[in-house]
Amino acid sequence: MNKPRYDVGHLCMLIGLVGFTLWYLSDAIRVSFTVPNLLLIMPVAIAILMLALAELLMSWRGGKLFEAVDDEPVREILPIILLFAVYVLSLPWLGFDLGTILFVAIFLRMKKETNWYWVIGYSVGFGLAIALFFALMLPYPMPMTFLPID
């Protein structure tokens, strides 16, 4: 499909995994440099570093270091991820009812739903119903804009 010719994502991912492993190992060592504390973490971290190095070398030799396995178009997926991130991060301010209505409506518009009745009807209907359902089910208050919190 739209597989990019040169994708640095795999390399970045490997660097990210190695970076996390090194940071976590150093944090564990900082807490306590004792066998019981590092019994699992140290060997696992070393194994990850060795495997990551092997993966790096093998991918490089096989010419696959700059390739994605999945060929789904990133340009169409990234806005969805961004929208989902904004939805989740804005929930404490927007509340579950308004946040969900906006998220569903924007999602439908992004995916080219042209029928405004459907866009408004489904986002408002589903957003309010699901927020109300969880608000009634959960024993603690959920942030809301329209619906009652308790």
């Binding site: 999602f107 589903f126 699901i130």
Partner: peptide, 14 residues
């Protein structure tokens, strides 16, 4: 999918 995806994502978040 434009209806299925947001529905499932909202369920996961809540």
């Amino acid at each position: 999918m434009r209806y299925l995806i947001p529905t499932v994502l909202v369920l996961a978040v809540m």
